[in-house]
């Protein structure tokens, strides 16, 4: 799925990386616990989270996660956005809660191919 489709499905606002919407994503992870992201995310996934601090960006960097979508209408501050820009990480935000955002992407086929 292209990031531009993700944006549309989640009615998301792009905060960094607007020029990268042609990128493809193949799986997603919905998680507020960075410890678990570090332990369980296997491939380059998109991260949906409601957690809001610089360690979210740092965790994404370590895991080679290229896109973070903040859920529940949260808006990251400039320190988070600045860090994401420096590390070429794409940031979006959506009003949907985590459960619904994940469900919408799953329903449209993101990451559900090999789990049925």
């Amino acid at each position: 799925m292209k990031l531009s489709d993700v944006k549309e499905i989640l009615n998301a606002e792009i905060l960094t990386g607007e020029e990268l919407m042609d990128k493809e994503v193949y799986s997603a992870c919905g998680c507020d616990l960075m410890s678990d992201v570090l332990a369980f995310v296997k491939d380059r996934a998109l991260l949906l989270t409601g957690l809001m601090n610089p360690q979210v960006v740092r965790t994404a960097e370590m895991m080679d996660i290229e896109t973070i979508i903040f859920v529940r209408g949260k808006r990251p501050d400039d320190s988070i956005l600045g860090m994401a820009k420096m590390k070429d990480i794409i940031i979006m935000r959506t009003e949907y809660p985590l459960y619904i955002a994940a469900g919408k992407l799953y329903e449209k086929g993101l990451g559900n191919k090999d789990r049925k």
Binding site: M34, S35, A39, L51
Partner: peptide
């Protein structure tokens, strides 16, 4: 802050 799940050392 999103840490302290007890996965650090095992990970």
């Amino acid at each position: 802050l999103g840490f302290g799940a007890g996965m650090g050392l095992p990970n």
